[in-house]
Amino acid sequence: MSRRRNKPRLTPAWLPWIRTRLAGRLRDRLSRTSRLLQATPYQRMLAEAWNEADSLAAAPLWWVSRDMTTLAVDTAQAGGLPDTDPPSPAGFICFDGGLGLELPDGMPPIAAVHWIIDGSRPGPEGRSWLIRPLLYTADHDACAKEGDLPLAPIDATPTAGLPEALGDILLAVWALSQEPRICQAKPAQPSPQDRLPASQEPEIRKVKMLVLRENLHRPGRPAEPGDEQRAWTHRWIVRGFWRNQAYGPDHALRRRQWIPPYVKGPADKPLIAKETVRIWRR
């Protein structure tokens, strides 16, 4: 007896299925385009687009929880990120709740990024590689055109500064994912509501979920006897910084060490960023 499949939803368990369908749609469009554009000037453009489709089909999958997304965007905004190598030449990363970026009028919100590392061009800040992001949205109208998939590609040309801003966010995600006291990385697990095709079940656990580790301790010093306990209404971000870390014999040596950001406040309260995220560069 076959199981009845739900309509696809934007959840970690559905991410492998969504990636496969998006790559298939992209290949279909390229097939139609290649039959129309056979002239030599377009061959390189089509070859690069085919490479993007193949990269998407096999890209490692990441899912970033809503709180981890907030922390990553705030960390990217603060700047001073450590030099972190990409975990893979390409990847497909979905941000729960989307990225809270200020975008030009008419551009739908960004919910996912397909990154490709371009080693042929130097990146910013002395890096030898460049992040080439391809954008996806969960906008209802755009998704309806993709057969009601919960993600759709954003075809608009990104405004100047957006690729660099997204590159900073990806660097922040990769750096934070290596901090076990801040971030918990675990494989995705299907929920009872995720009734997927049986063929997709082995792929679900390949999705790397990044979840903010909960702060189980209340902030501040314990109240003195008779003092009223302060009622905290939210959690907040303590931003990372660099310091000269002592090490070696008698701690006589110093090295520059990145101290990652972390979150303070009761685990059951919402996470509030210090200020509105504005990382737009014009």
Rank of each mutant, 00 (worst) to 15 (best):
residue 117 I to H: 08
residue 103 L to R: 06
residue 5 R to V: 14
residue 89 P to N: 09
residue 189 Q to P: 00
residue 107 M to D: 01
residue 20 T to L: 13
residue 250 D to I: 02
residue 280 W to T: 12
residue 279 I to D: 03
residue 60 P to H: 09
residue 80 G to Y: 04
residue 246 A to V: 10
residue 239 R to P: 12
residue 173 V to I: 15
residue 255 R to A: 11
residue 33 T to Y: 07
residue 282 R to Q: 14
residue 187 P to E: 05
residue 275 E to V: 10
residue 120 S to A: 11
residue 8 P to S: 10
residue 8 P to C: 10
residue 163 P to G: 08
residue 112 A to G: 06
residue 166 L to V: 05
residue 157 T to M: 11
residue 204 I to D: 01
residue 220 G to K: 00
residue 93 I to W: 07
residue 242 W to T: 08
residue 8 P to M: 11
residue 57 A to M: 04
residue 266 P to L: 05
residue 261 P to G: 02
residue 43 Q to L: 11
residue 43 Q to F: 00
residue 101 L to A: 07
residue 240 G to F: 07
residue 85 D to Q: 14
residue 198 A to W: 05
residue 272 I to N: 03
residue 249 P to H: 02
residue 125 E to N: 14
residue 86 P to V: 00
residue 181 R to L: 13
residue 225 P to W: 01
residue 32 R to T: 13
residue 81 L to T: 03
residue 239 R to S: 14
residue 197 P to I: 02
residue 75 T to V: 07
residue 57 A to H: 11
residue 13 A to C: 05
residue 75 T to D: 04
residue 138 A to G: 11
residue 264 K to P: 01
residue 248 G to C: 05
residue 25 R to V: 02
residue 179 E to Q: 15
residue 130 L to I: 02
residue 246 A to C: 07
residue 90 A to D: 05
residue 150 P to D: 07
residue 86 P to N: 02
residue 272 I to M: 14
residue 110 I to P: 09
residue 168 D to M: 14
